[in-house]
Design a protein around this nucleic acid. Sequence first.
RNA 1: GCGAAAGUGGCGGAACUGGCAGACGCGCCGGACUUAGGAUCCGGUAGCCGAAAGGCUAUGGGGGUUCAAAUCCCCCCUUUCGCACCA
Length: 858
Amino acid sequence: MSDYRPQAIESKWQQAWTDARAFEVSEDAARPKFYCLEMFAYPSGHAHVGHVRNYIIGDVVARMKRMRGFNVLHPFGWDAFGLPAENAAIKDGIHPQTSTFANIAHMKGQLKRLGISYAWEREIATCQPEYYKWNQWLFLKMFERNLAYRKRSTVNWCPSCQTVLANEQVVDGACWRCGSAVLQRELEQWFLRITAYAEELLAGTERLHQWPDKVLTMQRNWIGRSAGVRVRFPLVPLDREAVAGPDASPAPADIEIFTTRVDTIYGATFVLLSPEHEMVEHFARGATSPSELLARVDRFRAQDRTARLTGEIEKEGFDTGRQAINPFTGQNIPIWIANFVLAEYGTGAIMAVPAHDQRDFEFARKYGLAVKVVIQPPSGDRLEDDTMEAAYVGDGRVVESAEFTGLASTAAIGRMSEAAERRGIGRRTVQYRLKDWGISRQRYWGTPIPILYCDRCGVVPVPPEDLPVLLPRVATFTGRGDSPLAHVAEFLNTTCPRCGGAAQRETDTMDTFFDSSWYFYRFCDPRNDELPFHPATVAYWAPVDFYSGGVEHAILHLIYSRFFTRVFRDLGMVHHDEPFARLLTQGMVLKAGAVMSKSKGNVVDPDDMINRYGADALRVYVMFVAPPEKEVEWTDAGLEGSFRFLNRLWRIVDGVCETIGGDGIPAPDQERLSGAERALRRKTHETIRRVTLDLDPRVHLNTAVSALMELVNELYVFCDGAGCLRAMVRTDAESVGTLERIETVTVLKEAVESLVLLLSPFAPHMAEELWQRLGHAGGIVSAGWPAFDEHVARHEEIVVPVQVNGRVRARLRVPAEASEGELRSLALADPAVQRFTQGRTVKNVVVARGKLVNVVVQ
RNA sequence: GCGAAAGUGGCGGAACUGGCAGACGCGCCGGACUUAGGAUCCGGUAGCCGAAAGGCUAUGGGGGUUCAAAUCCCCCCUUUCGCACCA
């Protein structure tokens, strides 16, 4: 008998696991595989209990699957590139390389102290050339296949910091660091053509049955498919254009718009262009006062980009003075420029139908533009152009629309689309909200993009044999200037592999989401130096069977990974479409009602908790406190409760170790058991069943822990009855020997050993220690997961509540197999029931066998 | 504004497919053991009425379906999350 000393036990077993390389695996065609993965970590320095919760969830699943005979791959690594390290370098002068590896070392220690069963032999860090070389390799493959391309695009630019800012770094139109007004600037950027897979990524969401609906909905919204028609509205030419000088570019003939509501086209009374529309410059040249027009456009363009995107801006516009012809009505309609029309969606131009679009309606009323009703609602209230107070956006009957008049608006969409195509003025298209992914970052701490610019040959990819393009060790970080790499002459200047002439390297680095979009494949084959991974190895392990992480990655990381998986598939390297079969999004841990963060000063450091209560108690508490998906509030008292539970479990198991630990104790013989022994045995098998099913397929870790608590409580009751409790609890060794019946020992042994095995995914150190003390030489994994006997778990006698008119009035103690008729007559004969049925007529008796009887009276 | 999810004791949470609401834990109250207890073990703990037996009321609010509703349907309220001029 000894006290529970978590610190000693935990370091003992952690050392044993490390020495034995206990969690390293290799492909084994004879065993079923299980790939269990938690989202890898950004090495910020310290993991708090919020981060750690995710790793514990994954570890419980991995350990359980291992015990159930699966060949479990459970790796971990570091999303090691990224802005914070670089910003820290700017601030403190510590090189990102130095701080990143120091942070990794610390966090790895934290995870080891938690006893997470990672195959550390497979650890990767994305900032190592051995990893990012394959980012570059993949980028080149994408470049070859025209999935990576260069394009000018608008970015947020801080004139004071001289750098590009991500959208999230622009706060109310100002730079987050210095507060200067952010400008829009055009830059050449590299893009990945994720839109080529838009349709497939959308369709795939229908087959991800083991993902949370919430995430799937978010991805569908993000992709934002809308089917519609592009229609060309011819320009009404200006007289002046006919006599334009020889230097003038040819006058464009029409404006193309995109609409999902072509059924309303007869109500299109004007055209709106975005301020960025290419036609704007052309109109300016022909305008009576070009500078005035351009000045007004510039004012729109200068309006805060995020405000324009989010619609928190007053809708404004002005007339260009030009007109277009509505190709369906043949009428001339004015062309305006409006600040709310987005350049990056559709064609950057829309047909305005004020009667049937609220934004257009407000705009038309504000500026006195024509409103024309072309859909009448089915309700019968007739809409009038002049009196309507809001746009009618629903379906209805088409009116005032030539040969389409009288059609249902839904049918008119098809007919009008056909008409537009037949007349050669439009075509059906599908438009996505999803945009190609801009991956260029004007930053240092990322993967160099493997491209050269040669004066003679132009854009030249780095030959694969020259990979990796190593990130040079830049000495100073000032936070000024565009890409830090542009100032490193040895890096920048090189020779063109095609012509041998002078060339310059691309100095931007990749968005770090590139790194995280395929790391789960690298884990399968982490030291391969010929390929990112061997296809056969990935074919064995992939897809990931269980993936867990925060909801904050519901869109970006998860959609990029699905995109990359399809690229690898098209390269012939993987043979599946989806990388993650099952996804669990774990809830955050709050402290004082807020998300833990260093700046708020409310972080709970797992190391503090481990020092006080041990890793096992922390693990049990975090799993017990709530279902994994839910947000939870951290409480020290709850952790203490879990610590108490482990102590209680320890005492009773350790107390009976000697009695039940010996050899030669047979399995329980059901026929010879006493009532109490049967009850314990039943509880044991019930618990095995509950924990088994709570862990797999459900991942209800909290109720699994509560089932273990119940079994421990039952053990105390049993031992109390068997007369051994006092003895054990009080260390009086002499009375331990009071267990005289061999049957008592057999059921106790079965209960205690099952308990220890079921506990092991949650509290692995304690379980290993107790298992050893119970006299087992092999570890927990070789013991395997306990099996339950449905027959033993079943109650022989059950209590059936009897209701009268839905209220419980009595309880019947009956054999489990009591028939409907028996239950019925027993219920009606019960005196407590009769009190309520006396003097009334029994109309009905509902018997749910094994569950309940309801007597309906009067 | 649109969409989704959720709302259960003092607290975290249970409740399989409609079948005893509140498992398990925290907290609190009582008892035992003790020089002592903040350790441990045992018991109690939704609210109201009642000495008790027992009864009544309760799963955000209001209606409905059903022998039976936390669970299914309708309306409303609140909270959280996501999207937000996407033509």
